[in-house]
Design a protein around this nucleic acid. Structure first.
Lengths: 224, 224
DNA sequence: TTTTTTATGTCATTTCATTGTCATCCATTG
DNA sequence: CAATGGATGACAATGAAATGACATAAAAAA
């Protein structure tokens, strides 16, 4: 199982990591909330283990963000020294599935993971492509940015799919037309520009960071 | 939600029962394991809350039996004074989904129930499928939205069932025809469109939020 | 049985979102 | 400053989806 562990205390993190690896899981570790959020954007994890108290984005906040952006796709286990009822309730309300209070034994964590994964959804998750906080749902022809769903037309979808699956690379208008419009490019067509514009108003407008970048003299590039 | 509570201490039992009733749940209570097992045989519960320490059949044993006989259909919460790691692990291994250590506040129990029921599969013993405030009664071939009953024809029912059990995913007209009409799709049939229209007038018309969404160029998607 | 009602499916029509073109506007750069 | 490439708004053509009308089939009532 692919697990994300976000824990700022290095000793505890490596202790858990070792244990999980021994149980045959694949583990990615981040030592603060921001790094964790980054990893979430890059890979799909089947389970998230989040420490509550961390510098920057804390576990509750990270959990809320995750739920907002990805729904209840994967279970979340909260990990913390706080053990009062109120804290537990807060954690569960933030969308966590379970809550383990430190100090805990690895056996307990393992048992809870087992219990959770028994319940993990049967249906496969929608295949998605991501770029930063943008998620492109392949089957639904729909994008979700920071949890906000955005409907795309067929053409917009195909363009975004091409851009996102070549993110980081600058794509020429020629190659875009070939790929998205299935025809040869011909001078004096600004159809790509127009559709880039459509996409920008849908997925970039109103967001602080832009994902679609113009590469003057060359074409366009998608990057977080 | 229909909940079974098995707890031998009468005070605690009535305390929990009262709380759950106030939260709008339907509760059946048994004061020992045998009586609990009896009730399990008679009714289907969506959640089981079991005390570990009881005369006769204890909570762990009851949970094991339940899992053996009915699988992981409904979640089980263990309730006990024992709070050591070892006890918790044993409980989870017996098939429990969660473990609450006494003394606990009702708020904690409620929060854990919430967290669990988010994940409950709408499995076989549970004869309803839901999407938002829409409930599809599998046995009756009837839908209920916001408490308003809606009669469906056979074809409408099968279509809605297919949509709802694949909610969140866009379904193509092809696959819908295959599934609902048991035949191969053939161009120039708009029968799916027509029946989607019938369904919409029955379950979406007049409601502020629509459940059936068109995915242009692709098909239809059901989502709350 | 016949009659009536309901369900189902086809087809034609209407509606409306999507698509692509063009003209204009804006910014950057030599 | 002009020249260039890119951004954007207006608009018309297109095509997909929604809907209405109708014919047939099945079920229910008389």
């Amino acid at each position: 199982m692919k697990i994300l562990l976000v824990e700022d205390e290095v000793n505890i993190a490596s202790f858990i990591e070792r244990g999980l690896r021994e149980s045959g899981h694949e583990v990615a570790t981040a030592h603060d909330g921001a790094a964790g959020w980054d990893l979430i954007g890059k890979t799909h994890f089947q389970l998230l283990i989040l420490d509550v108290i961390m510098p920057g984005i804390n576990g509750l906040e990270l959990c809320r963000r995750y739920r907002a952006a990805y729904g209840y796709a994967s279970p979340v286990v909260m990990l913390t020294a706080l053990g009062t009822t109120d804290d537990i309730v807060k954690g569960l309300e933030a969308g966590a599935d379970d809550y383990v209070v430190k100090p805990f034994s690895f056996a307990e964590l393992e048992a809870r993971i087992q219990a959770l994964s028994r319940r993990t959804k049967t249906g496969e998750p929608n295949p998605v492509l991501t770029c930063g906080d943008l998620v492109l749902e392949v089957d639904n022809h729909r994008a979700v940015r920071s949890g906000i769903p955005i409907n795309l037309t067929v053409r917009e979808y195909r363009l975004l799919e091409y851009l996102i699956s070549n993110q980081g690379k600058a794509l020429t208008r020629q190659s875009i037309i070939k790929q998205v419009w299935d025809k040869e490019a011909d001078r004096n067509m600004n159809i790509v520009d127009v559709y880039i514009n459509y996409l920008r108003t849908k997925i970039d407008k109103g967001f602080p960071t832009k994902l679609i970048h113009t590469v003057p003299g060359s074409g366009y590039r998608m990057e977080a």
